[in-house]
Amino acid sequence: MDFNENFILGCSAIGAGLAVIAGIGPGVGQGIAAGHAAAAVGRNPGAKSDVTSTMLLGQAVAETTGLYGLLIAMLLLFVKPLLP
């Protein structure tokens, strides 16, 4: 079985598109974190700086899985590991 180079590149592009669907999860997670942080600041405005730094830390950690998807997409598009 040998495939045309263009076929492999096209499939890599589709795979890259599918890989960045991973961005949905971190989006929802970061939104939830930001919403709860806003509620916390509303309840206790004095703790704003602590809440903000905790929120940013949690969001950055939650972002990681989305970034893994992005990395896979970049590898497929620019490093082209599937080409023979």
């Binding site: 990681t64 970034l67 893994y68 990395l71 970049m74």
Partner: peptide, 16 residues
């Protein structure tokens, strides 16, 4: 690995 990939992917995405 996750520490370094997080930093790398964030900066790389901005660069790209």
């Amino acid at each position: 690995i996750s520490l370094s990939l997080r930093l790398f992917a964030n900066v790389l995405s901005g660069t790209v």
